[in-house]
Amino acid sequence: MSADDLNDNLIYDDKVTALSDDEAGADDLNDNLVYDGNVSGSDNESENESDSDSDDSKDNDKKRKHENDDDEDSDENEDSSNNENELEGDEDNDNSDNDTDEDSEEKKIKQEAEAKEREAKKKAKAKKKRDEMKKKKRMRLEKEQLEKENERKTKSDSEIFWSSIDSNNSVTQIEKDEINDQSFVNSSLTSEQRSLSNLSSFIKQVYPNWKKNLGKPPKESDYKGQPSVLVVTQSAIRAVEVIRSLNEFSKYCKVGKLFSKHMKVKEQVEYLSKSVVKIAVGTPNRLIKLAENESLDMNKLDLLVIDYTFKDSKNRNIFEIPEIRKDLLAFIKQHCINRIKDQTQKIALF
């Protein structure tokens, strides 16, 4: 190969190399341009995507806000609905409670009315029973009173007295002779029924000198503890009733209370020692005690009234209660017999 050919080849190679370098540079430039374009495009796309994402985010935020607003509205509507339902439920409950209260009140009123009706029927039944018992008692007393009145027509007071007080035949004939028909007031002087309402008038009829003898004595010291009229009854309760029935005599004299459960013996002794007692009411046992300690003096007694028509809750008169009958007979025999025998004292069965 010649030198010219060699130079030509070298020049050619240099050109080729230069061309290659230029092409390579151009390719690199193109690649760079392409890369830059891609990068720029990518950036634009990123920006676009970012803007799109931002818009989407905003849209999503708006959507979420709208949804939240819708949810809030829904919640508010639901709360409102619930509140309305609760109010309606409360109203229903209130109405139900009111209905229950009204039913309960009506039931209570009805029960009270029924209870009052039962109580009224019970009282009416009890009253009817009491009235029937009172009627039976009144009829029995009237029957007994009639029997006693008939007995008085067929028997003398002395026979009634001894048949009643000597039920076991313990009294001797001598004692009976001491208390005879002359010892009793004339029952024919009064035809009135023997009841407390007639006791005052009975005493006035069988004791003609009552006004003179029951008035204020000329010398009071001579009459302290010395009654002119003595009513003997079977119990303190009955004695109180007897005293009330003798109230019309209170303007003439004092009526002494000589029975237990009202005053102690000591108090009655003191009372008799200081008081002029023209009428006295007492029970047999207490009269014996007061007579034994001499605070009660029988020396001026004109009338001994025995309350024998009255009967206690067991339907017994003063002669039918053993211990009282015994005390009554003992009191008469020990403290009244002397004046009875000499006819200065009378016995009256009332």
Rank of each mutant, 00 (worst) to 15 (best):
S191C: 02
S80D: 13
N44L: 05
I237E: 10
Y223K: 00
D73K: 01
V39I: 09
K15M: 09
D297C: 01
P208A: 11
N30W: 15
K261Q: 10
M139I: 13
N209F: 03
K65R: 15
M133C: 14
E175W: 05
V269L: 05
T17C: 09
A113F: 15
S46W: 06
N7R: 12
K155C: 08
S313T: 10
D97P: 02
F319C: 09
E117P: 14
L146M: 10
N98K: 00
D327T: 05
D99S: 13
V240T: 14
D71M: 10
F184I: 08
L189I: 06
T172A: 00
E320Y: 03
M1K: 13
G256I: 05
S188D: 09
D75T: 11
M298T: 10
E86F: 11
N317V: 07
S275T: 04
K289N: 14
V242G: 10
V276G: 01
R316I: 11
C253H: 02
S187K: 13
R64Y: 13
K224G: 00
N83E: 15
K121F: 04
S235F: 12
Q343P: 01
D53S: 01
N150T: 08
A126Q: 06
D99I: 00
P284W: 07
D312R: 04
D222K: 00
I288F: 08
P284E: 01
L303C: 02
R152Y: 11
E144P: 08
E105T: 03
K116P: 07
D97F: 09
N209K: 02
N150Y: 11
Q173I: 14
S273L: 04
Q343A: 14
D73T: 11
K261H: 10
D90V: 15
N180Y: 08
E23K: 14
S235G: 04
M1R: 14
K128A: 03
K136M: 07
Q145K: 02
E45Q: 04
D297A: 00
D36Y: 07
A18K: 13
L10R: 03
E23V: 15
S195A: 07
I337L: 07
T154N: 06
K143A: 06
S40G: 08
N213A: 03
V185Q: 15
K346C: 00
K274G: 00
K63C: 10
N60Y: 10
K122D: 11
V16M: 11
L189V: 03
K326T: 14
D157Q: 06
K311R: 10
N98P: 00
E175Y: 10
L19V: 05
L290F: 01
N68G: 06
